[in-house]
Design a protein around this nucleic acid. Structure first.
Length: 214
DNA sequence: TGCCAGGCCGGGT
DNA sequence: ACCCGGCATGGC
């Protein structure tokens, strides 16, 4: 079986096992972007608390966050962890957004995908996964999101090399799947779902639905 | 209790 | 070009 068939087979199996995930959990593109930065190496439930704080403070808008004091903002996102780092990162992104796109997300997403991805990567605090999450889940752009679970699951099952880079893993999916936003969206969400339940760093994934399947 | 979470940066070899 | 420490809260 070639890689395309394998990826499709895994996708169908995960989808029938878990059902649609309906990602990203967020009310607006802007909230998705904030969540993408807040969830860096962080449990989503902690991110939800931080986002609730921001909603309560009525800060979930580009111009609001752009104006608020960095230390004050850090205090609100404390539950998400790394709050001092993330406060600066989010403020940096806002600064960049106003500098380049007048604080307007629609204008930002009108930019050519390849160019925009490079631009996002140039913002301090936005790495490949955060950039791709923003593009796919806030902008509906066809770019596959890779994360620690993706690498762990697919290398453990021998589909990619243990030491493959972010870019190599991303290409593996994009080269073997149709370029389809809805498919990329759901596939990554399902990977996170199965990863959370069955694929921890220091544990054998005994009951993983992908075992004895490929 | 220690491990883990939907990374990324900066400094040292 | 890699390698590694730092960043930090909350749930199990």
């Amino acid at each position: 079986m070639n890689n395309s068939d394998t990826l499709k087979k895994i996708y169908n199996h995960l989808l029938s096992t878990f059902g649609p995930c309906n990602w990203w959990p967020g009310d607006s593109p802007f909230e998705v972007i904030i969540g993408a930065i807040l969830t860096q190496n962080t449990n989503w439930s902690n991110v939800e608390k931080a986002i609730q704080n921001l909603k309560q403070a009525n800060l979930l808008a580009p111009e609001k966050i752009n104006e608020v004091d960095t230390a004050e903002f850090a205090e609100l996102i404390k539950p998400a962890g790394y709050f001092n780092v993330k406060s600066k990162r989010i403020k940096k992104f806002m600064e960049w957004l106003f500098e380049n796109y007048d604080g307007d997300l629609s204008m930002m997403f009108d930019q050519d995908l390849g160019i925009l991805r490079c631009e996002l990567l140039s913002v301090n605090g936005i790495g490949p996964e955060t950039a791709d999450s923003i593009l796919l889940y806030a902008g509906d752009k066809p770019t596959f999101v890779v994360d620690a679970y993706t690498h762990r699951i697919f290398s453990r099952h021998g589909l990619i090399s243990e030491d493959s880079s972010y870019h190599e893993t991303k290409e593996f999916f994009e080269d073997n799947l149709p370029e389809d936003v809805a498919l990329y969206n759901e596939y990554h969400a399902l990977i996170v779902q199965v990863g959370k339940e069955y694929c921890k760093p220091k544990k054998k994934c005994d009951k993983c639905p992908l075992n004895n399947f490929l």
